[in-house]
Amino acid sequence: MSFEKLEEKFPNLKRESYRITSEATTQYNCIAWAIEKDDLVWWPDTMDQYSWPQDIVREEGLDAFISFFRRLGYEVCDDDLLERGFEKIALYVDENARGTHAAKQLKNGKWTSKLGPDEDIEHDTLIALVGAKLGVIGQILKCPVTS
């Protein structure tokens, strides 16, 4: 991966530290990575090509993604702060409130993101990926974790 290319697409990355944590692969996407899977592409595409629970509406609105993560024990929350006993996921949306990306918080408070069919990266803040490509942060969710 070219760091220049990455920073060209995500200009906010230039202002903080980040690192690339995998090679590029199409085998999994951001949703899969957020639920710690690396063997499927999860997305509610209207051509029915990719994985999506049959009983969750197959559309890209934020609510559908929230429903997806609720199924796994997540609930909406108000902030992206590291919170003991919880793990958090951030959903990004475009200007039409359609889901564009999911990032997962790590135990050190930083975030990990699978960037489409490309690499994973670890980034300090959610703002790092805000911009033209992925939009803005639409909702943060949290789930209690057992130690």
């Binding site: 949703i31 990306h101 999911a102 489409g116 992925l134």
Partner: peptide, 12 residues
């Protein structure tokens, strides 16, 4: 043009 995009719809 679709580098780093996750949305299958946007990619397609």
């Amino acid at each position: 043009e679709t580098r780093y995009l996750s949305s299958i719809s946007e990619i397609s």
